Computed example of a mutant assay.
Amino acid sequence: MALIRLSLLLTLLTFALSTNAKRYIGGDQWNRPRINKSFFIKQDKFIKELILRTVKVVNTKQRKVGTAFFYKENADHYIFLTNYHVISGNRECRDSKLLLINSDFNKRYASCDGVIQEGTIKSGSDYIYFKVNKEERLNFLSQISEVRTDFSDPVIGDRLVSVGFGAGKANRRRYDAKISMDRDCLYLNGNIDITFNKDKVRDVFFTACDAQSGDSGSAVMNLETGDIIGLFFAVADQKRSNPLTSKEIQDNLGTDYMEFYTNASMSIDLRKIKLK
């Protein structure tokens, strides 16, 4: 087992953060439809809430796009979670403009009001909690269920779903979210510590969900339970056009198949990111 784990860590040095990767394909097909009003109104409560809590992050100084999601609220603020490499501290918070949609599929705008807590790759994670001032046009967030962190371990093969702004335009007025929820968007394995640029990222799980630059910071939801289980942060640096086929996924579920670690999209277990 020690040799297997060592091999995994050496192999994982080739992984790239999602902001540096053009596109990751899990399974045989690329399937990330754009979310519009007609799509939204047909979804069940779980999917609707996932879409409503998902936020487009536009860094106006660097002209880059990322994703965040509503985590909880307190008396004065709504609190959101994303990756540190999406909003790297208070300076980038001040430069970040946010876009959401409400339950009527109308656009709502907000700004990052400050960083509450952060964890960098060097510290063993990749997250940042930031706050947004409460105001009337964001009241719909108070109707969304708070994220639970007491969920049970996901089961290998559980179907997942993620909403993000991969390939989105660096324009706060353009709502261009996409959803990954095809038959290959599955929980493959976890939790494992990986090595990234000589630093260790803890409690990572692996999926075959299609992803794209700009999806960093997306919530990963378990379709079987409705629980948000992870914070998406990285994808494999694919060397082939489609290195993990649908047949490979189905044939090797429940095993330590090496391709599940070296050719996957990656998220941090939400239970391990504790808001102080």
Rank of each mutant, 00 (worst) to 15 (best):
K272A: 12
I249V: 07
L188Y: 05
F206L: 14
E259M: 09
D269W: 11
S218A: 13
I194R: 09
V235H: 06
F196R: 00
D256R: 15
E224G: 00
A236I: 03
K272P: 09
L188G: 07
G226V: 06
R202T: 07
K272G: 10
D193F: 02
G214H: 09
D269A: 08
T262E: 12
R271H: 01
N242D: 12
T225H: 01
K198N: 15
I192Q: 12
K239Y: 00
N197C: 00
N222S: 08
I229W: 11
L223S: 12
T195G: 04
Q238E: 12
D193V: 00
D269Q: 06
A236N: 01
F232T: 06
D269M: 06
N191L: 12
T255H: 04
I228T: 10
D227L: 04
G230L: 09
F232I: 05
M258A: 13
F205P: 04
I268N: 12
G214V: 10
R271G: 06
Y187L: 02
D193C: 00
D203E: 13
D256A: 14
N189I: 08
I229C: 08
D210S: 00
A219C: 09
A234V: 07
T195W: 06
I268C: 09
F232L: 10
I192R: 12
N252E: 08
S218W: 13
I249R: 01
F206C: 07
I268L: 15
T245V: 02
M221Y: 09
N242C: 11
F205M: 11
S246T: 15
C209P: 03
C185K: 03
Y187H: 04
S265K: 00
L188T: 11
R240W: 02
I268Q: 15
D269K: 05
I229N: 08
Y261S: 14
I194H: 00
Q250K: 15
G254T: 11
D203S: 13
F233N: 12
I229T: 05
L186I: 11
G226Y: 05
Q238T: 14
M266W: 09
S241W: 05
F260W: 11
G230C: 04
F232Y: 15
S267N: 14
S218V: 05
V235E: 15
Q238D: 14
N222H: 07
F205K: 10
G226L: 04
M221W: 05
G190R: 03
S216M: 00
D215R: 02
D269F: 10
I249W: 00
V201P: 01
Y257K: 10
N197W: 10
R271D: 04
E259T: 11
D210Q: 03
G230S: 05
A236M: 01
N222K: 05
N191C: 09
I228Q: 02
A234L: 09
L270V: 12
Y257N: 03
G254P: 11
G217M: 07
S213Q: 13
Y261V: 13
S213A: 14
T245C: 02
N222F: 07
S265G: 11
F233K: 07
N222Y: 10
